[in-house]
Design a protein around this nucleic acid. Structure first.
Length: 938
RNA sequence: GUCCCCGUAGACCAAUCGGCAGAGUCGAUGGACUCAAAAUCCAUUCAGUGUGGGUUCGAAUCCCACCGGGGACACCA
C-alpha cells in the first residue's frame, strides 16, 4: 500500500512524528532567538539584573564535554545530556538560576590522524565535526546557554590554558604550608637566607645560570630527563595513566617502551596527600574514589638505612618498620644504581650454591640475571609462580640488631617504587615468604602468629623477638620504631606514593603550544602574559613522525620543530632583542579539560580566567568545610582517574594561588550508564546489519539465514549504530528523550531497543489528545474542577515526581506521569486543574511538546520559567487505609479504616476480620505496622 | 588471585525503615474501529525475586556460602 493511503486515515491533529517535526524546530528557534536558557552572572558582560532568576539560588550542572569525533553522535552518547537537561529544566522551574553549558574537547589524536590520512587540516575537520555536533544537540532540544559554549581549540580559550601553565610554571610547592606559592617567594627566601639553597651554597655566590637551575628544580612544571613511556607507533610519549597494565598505549594499543628522554613534567606528586584527603569532602561514587586512592597509592611507613660492608648505604622504604627485627635479607631491584658498587669480586666463603644462579662470580650472576629480567615481558614477570633472583655476594647490616643480612637482586622488587630496594621480612610479607622458601632464607617471626599458621602472617598481634618493641601492638610498634630510627639517625618516617609526576608534553601537532622559549643556556623562559596566546602555527606537514611500533630506539620528533621560522624567534623579554628557540612539544589532550568548568562561568572575560565574583557565585563553597565546585557533574566512569585527577590537581593549584575560592572542581559526580546494543553474526562469523535482522520464535534471522546475537558497544564495526537523528525523524526528539529517560535509571547500562520507542510516542500522543481534539484541532480543556479522587491522584503524582526528579530517578517520574495521564484519559473532559500541572511536569522530558501545549492552553510565554507544580499536603492524606491482615505470614483478610485510626482499634478490627482463620486459637503476638499491615502470630 | 557492583514476568525496569512482589514500557493474546490492514484505543496474559542456608512474626531488601554477568586492581614493600 502506498504511504499516502496510510497517512489518509490518521486524524489530522494527532501528535505524530510529522507533527513533532513541525513543532520542534519552531521551539528550538524560539529558545535560541529569545536566549531562553541564558543564565545571568552576578557581574560582568553576562550579568542581567532583569533576568527572572537573577540573584536566585544557583545550580551549576555540567556534562563531561565530548570529543567531536567524525562519526557524530549515536543514541548512547546523549543519555547523560538528556538526563542533565531534564534535571536542570526541572530545577529552573523550581526557582534556581541554572547554569548548564556545553563545549567541545577538540584537541587530540583522532583529528590529527584523520588529517594525516586525508591531508585535511585538523582544524577543518574539527570545526566541521563541532558544527555537526551542535546541530545534533540542538535537534534534541538541549537547553544550553549557548553564549558560554567554546572549544578547547579556540585561541581565546587556549590562551588561558597557556596562562594556567604559566601559573604552574611560576609556582613551587611549599612543603611546610602544603600549598603552591609564587616562585618569586622562593627567590626572596633564598635571597634573604631564610631558606637553605640545595647543596648548602650561598645564593649570592651562585652564578645566574646556577640560580636559574636551582629555581627550575622547584617549579611545579619542569623539564626533566627521566625514563618516560615512549610509543613509537604513535610517535609520542605518554603519561603513566595512558599506558595499560600490559605496557601498551591506551589509544591505538601500540607497544610502549621505557626511554630516558627530556620532557615536561607536572609535580602532581606534591599534591598526593591533598588529592587523597580531599576525596572525603566529595559526593562521588565510592568506586571512583577508590580508584583514585588506588592510583595515588599513598603508603605511610619509614625509610631505613642499611649500611653495606663497603661505604655504601642501602636505603629502603617499608610500611612495616615494626617488623625490622625480622628483616633477614634485602632485595634490590635489578636496575638499582647501587648494585654494581656493592658486588664483590668473588663469592663469599660458604655461599649457598642455590643463590649463585650457577655463575662463577657475583658480577657474572648479576649480569646474567639482569639480561634475563630485561628479556621478560611485564606479563611474564608478574605471572611468575616462583620468585626468581640472585645473590649479589654483598651483605648489609640491620641497624636495629647489627645482624649481617645477604643482599639479593630480584625482579619482584620494582625500580620505580619507593627506593627500589626493600628489607625482606619473610615472616610477615607474602612475597618475601615466597622468596625465602625458594632460596632457603631464615624466617624470624616478630609478630605473635597463631599456632598452626603457615606462611606470612600479615595480621595484627603482639610484637615478639624485637627487644624494645616486645609486647606492643603493630600500630604502636610502628610509631616507636620510627621514633627510635630518627633518634639514632638510622632512618625517618616517610610517606610514598604510587603516583608519579605527570608527563605533560607530547610530540604532536594538534595541541596547545607551550608558552615557553629557550635562550642560549638551554633553560626555559616563560613568555609574558601579554604574548598569549601562542598560536599554533600553520605548517605544511602536520603529520607526526611515527615509527615502526616495535622500534624502541627511535627518537621522538615534534611536528612543530620542522617549522624553523616559527621555532627561532626574536623577542625582547627584558634584556633587549634576542633570538630565542620555542618549545616545540605540545600539551596533552587533558590540558584543555583540566579547567573548562571554570571558563563556562565567565567565557568571554579578557582580563581574567574567571571573575572572582562569578566563580564564588557558581562554584564557591556553600558552607564551612564545603569544597565548592560544580553541583552535579555527569559523565562516564572511564574518566575516573585520568581527567578527574588532572582537573583536581590544576584546580588546587589555582586555589593555592588565590584564583578560585573552591578547592575542588566537582562537588558531586554521577556516572551515567551506557546504552549498548545487540549485534548479529552469520554462520561465517561476519557481522550483519542489526537493523535488518528480524526475530522469529526467539531466533534471529538475516534474510533466510539464522544469525547469532551478541551484546556490545554501539559502533560501526558491529553494524548496530542508531543515531538520534534517525530517532528524531521516526518519532521526534521528544519521544526519543522520553524513551531514553524512561527505559531505566540513569546510572544503569542497558540494551537499546528501537522497537520499544513507540511506547513513549503513544504516551505523548495521549497527553496531546487530552488537550487537543485529533479530528478538529479544537482545545478540549474545561475549567471544571477535578473530582476529589482525581485531585488526590494529581497531588500524589506531583509529590512523587518532585521527589524522583530531585534524586535523578527519571524513569519512575515518567512512570508516574504516564499513570496520571492514564487516569485522566477516560474522563469525559480534561480539566485545566489537572492538565496544566501535567504539561509542566512533562516539560523537562518533552520540552517541545510541553511548550506547544502550554501555548495552546493560552499562555504567552515559554514554560521554562513557569512555577513547577507544588503538591497540596492536604491532598496527600488518603481517605482510608487498607490493612492486609496476616496470620502466620499469610494474608487472611483485609480491613479498611480511617487513616488516623488508633493502633488498638486497627488491632481489634484486624482480629475480628480474621476470626475465622484463627479458629479460636489465641494470638501469641499481634504486630501492627502503622499504615502498612497487621501480622498475627498464633 | 584480591576488591567492588549487579542478578525480580519473554525483554527493559518498579517496590520508602525489612511489611500485600508490580508503577510504567515493549512483546504476546483477545476485543473495538476497518472491506481489510496499519495506526489508535480497551482488556488479558506472565514471575514469587540466580541457587542453598541463616536471622526475623515477616526477607527482593539484612547475614553466610555458592553460581552467573559486569568492572577495578593485580608483586607498590
Amino acid at each position: 500500500m502506498s504511504e499516502s493511503e496510510t497517512n489518509a486515515d490518521i486524524p489530522p491533529y494527532r501528535y505524530t512524528a510529522a507533527k513533532a517535526a513541525e513543532i520542534e524546530p519552531r521551539w528550538q528557534a524560539y529558545w535560541a532567538d529569545n536566549g531562553t536558557f541564558n543564565a545571568p552572572n552576578p557581574t560582568g558582560e553576562l550579568a542581567d539584573p532583569t533576568h527572572p532568576r537573577a540573584g536566585a539560588p544557583k545550580l551549576h550542572v555540567q556534562d563531561m564535554f565530548p570529543y567531536p569525533s567524525g562519526s557524530g553522535l549515536h543514541v548512547g552518547h546523549p543519555l547523560g545530556y538528556i538526563g542533565t537537561d531534564s534535571y536542570t529544566r526541572y530545577k529552573r522551574m523550581a526557582g534556581y538560576n541554572v547554569l548548564h553549558p556545553m563545549g567541545f574537547d577538540a584537541f587530540g589524536l583522532p583529528a590529527e590522524q584523520y588529517a594525516v590520512q586525508t591531508g585535511t587540516h585538523p582544524r577543518t575537520t574539527t570545526e566541521a565535526n563541532i558544527e555537526r555536533y551542535r546541530g545534533q544537540l540542538r535537534r534534541l532540544g538541549l537547553a544550553y546557554d549557548n553564549r558560554r559554549s567554546f572549544a578547547t581549540t579556540d585561541p581565546d580559550y587556549y590562551r588561558w590554558t597557556q596562562w594556567i601553565f604559566l601559573q604552574v610554571f611560576n609556582s613551587w610547592f611549599d612543603p611546610d604550608l602544603r600549598k603552591a606559592r609564587p616562585i618569586d617567594d622562593l627567590v626572596a627566601e633564598f635571597e634573604a637566607g631564610t631558606r637553605e639553597v640545595p647543596g648548602g651554597r650561598a645564593w649570592s655566590q651562585l652564578p645566574a645560570v646556577e640560580r636559574r637551575k636551582v629555581i627550575d628544580g622547584f617549579r611545579l612544571a619542569y623539564v626533566s630527563e627521566a625514563p618516560v613511556n615512549w610509543c613509537p607507533g604513535l610517535g609520542t610519549v605518554l603519561a603513566n595513566e595512558e599506558v595499560t597494565p600490559d605496557g601498551r598505549s591506551e589509544r591505538g594499543n601500540y607497544p610502549v617502551f621505557q626511554r630516558s628522554l627530556k620532557q615536561w613534567m607536572m609535580r602532581i606528586t606534591a599534591y598526593g596527600d591533598r588529592l587523597v584527603d580531599d576525596l572525603d569532602a566529595l559526593d562521588w561514587p565510592e568506586p571512583v574514589k577508590l580508584m583514585q586512592r588506588n592510583w595515588i597509592g599513598r603508603s605511610r611507613g619509614a625509610h631505613v638505612d642499611f649500611p653495606t660492608d663497603g661505604d655504601d648505604v642501602i636505603s629502603v622504604f617499608t610500611t612495616r618498620p615494626d617488623t625490622l627485627f625480622g628483616a633477614t635479607y634485602m632485595v634490590l631491584a635489578p636496575e638499582h644504581t647501587l648494585v654494581d658498587a656493592i658486588v664483590p669480586t668473588t663469592w663469599p666463603a660458604g655461599t649457598n650454591p642455590a643463590w649463585t644462579g650457577g655463575a662463577a662470580d657475583p658480577a657474572e650472576a648479576v649480569r646474567t640475571y639482569r639480561a634475563a629480567a630485561a628479556a621478560k615481558t611485564e606479563e611474564e614477570r608478574t605471572d611468575a609462580k616462583v620468585k626468581t633472583g640472585v645473590f649479589t655476594g654483598a651483605f648489609a647490616t640491620n641497624p636495629v640488631n647489627g645482624a649481617k643480612v645477604p643482599v639479593f637482586i630480584a625482579d619482584y622488587v620494582l625500580a620505580g617504587y619507593g627506593t627500589g630496594a626493600i628489607m625482606a621480612v619473610p615472616g610477615h610479607d607474602e612475597r618475601d615468604w615466597d622468596f625465602a622458601q625458594t632460596f632457603d632464607l631464615p624466617i624470624v617471626r616478630t609478630i605473635e602468629t597463631p599456632e598452626d599458621f603457615d606462611g606470612a602472617y600479615t595480621g595484627d598481634g603482639a610484637v615478639i623477638n624485637s627487644e624494645f618493641l616486645n609486647g606492643k601492638g603493630v600500630a604502636e610498634a610502628k610509631a616507636a620504631m620510627i621514633a627510635w630510627l630518627e633518634e639514632k639517625g638510622h632512618g625517618r618516617g616517610a610517606t610514598t606514593f604510587r603516583l608519579r609526576d605527570w608527563l605533560f608534553s607530547r610530540q604532536r601537532y594538534w595541541g596547545e603550544p607551550f608558552p615557553i622559549v629557550y635562550d642560549e643556556t638551554g633553560l626555559p623562559i616563560a613568555l609574558p602574559e601579554s604574548m598569549l596566546p601562542v598560536e599554533l602555527p600553520e605548517v605544511d606537514d602536520f603529520s607526526p613522525r611515527t615509527f615502526d611500533p616495535d622500534d624502541a630506539d627511535s627518537e621522538p620528533e615534534t611536528p612543530l620543530s620542522r617549522k624553523k621560522d616559527w621555532v627561532h624567534v626574536e623577542l625582547d623579554l627584558g634584556d633587549g632583542l634576542k633570538t630565542y628557540t620555542r618549545e616545540t612539544n605540545t600539551m596533552p589532550q587533558w590540558a584543555g579539560s583540566c579547567w573548562y568548568e571554570l571558563r563556562y562561568l565567565d567565557p568571554h572575560n579578557e582580563k581574567v580566567l574567571v571573575d572572582p565574583e562569578n566563580e564564588a557565585y557558581w562554584m564557591g563553597p556553600q558552607r564551612p568545610g564545603d569544597p565548592g565546585g560544580v553541583d552535579l557533574y555527569v559523565g562516564g566512569v572511564e574518566h575516573a582517574v585520568l581527567h578527574l585527577l588532572y582537573a583536581r590537581f590544576w584546580h588546587k593549584v589555582l586555589y593555592d594561588l588565590g584564583h578560585v575560592s573552591s578547592f575542588e572542581p566537582f562537588r558531586k559526580l554521577f556516572n551515567q550508564g551506557y546504552i549498548q546494543a545487540y549485534a548479529f553474526r552469520d554462520a561465517r562469523g561476519v557481522i550483519v546489519p542489526a537493523e535488518e535482522v528480524v526475530e522469529r520464535d526467539g531466533k534471529y534471522y538475516y534474510g533466510d539465514q539464522e544469525v547469532a546475537r551478541e551484546y556490545g558497544k554501539m559502533g560501526k564495526s558491529l553494524k548496530n549504530v542508531v543515531t538520534p537523528d534517525e530517532m528524531s525523524e521516526q518519532y521526534g526528539a521528544d519521544t526519543f528523550r522520553v524513551y531514553e529517560m524512561a527505559m531505566g535509571p540513569l546510572d544503569v547500562s542497558r540494551p537499546w531497543d528501537t522497537r520499544a520507542v513507540v511506547g513513549s510516542q503513544r504516551f505523548l500522543q495521549r497527553v496531546w489528545r487530552l488537550v487537543i481534539d485529533e479530528e478538529t484541532g479544537a482545545i478540549r480543556v474545561t475549567d471544571t474542577p477535578l473530582d476529589p479522587k482525581t485531585r488526590r491522584a494529581l497531588h500524589q503524582t506531583i509529590a512523587g515526581v518532585r521527589e524522583d526528579m530531585d534524586e535523578l530517578r527519571f524513569n519512575t517520574a515518567i512512570a508516574k506521569l504516564i499513570q496520571l495521564t492514564n487516569t485522566l484519559t477516560p474522563l469525559q473532559a480534561t480539566s485545566r486543574e489537572a492538565i496544566e500541572p501535567l504539561v509542566l511536569m512533562m516539560s523537562p522530558f518533552a520540552p517541545h511538546l510541553a511548550e506547544e501545549l502550554w501555548r495552546k492552553l493560552g499562555h504567552e510565554d515559554t514554560c521554562a520559567y513557569a512555577d513547577y507544580p507544588v503538591a497540596d499536603p492536604a491532598q496527600l492524606v488518603a481517605e482510608s487505609v487498607t490493612y492486609p491482615v496476616q496470620v502466620n505470614g499469610k494474608v487472611r483478610g483485609r480491613v479498611e479504616v480511617a487513616p488516623d485510626t488508633a493502633e488498638d482499634a486497627v488491632r481489634a478490627a484486624a482480629l475480628a476480620e480474621v476470626a475465622d482463620a484463627l479458629a479460636g486459637r489465641e494470638p501469641r503476638k499481634v504486630i501492627v505496622v502503622p499504615g502498612r499491615l497487621v501480622s498475627v502470630v498464633v
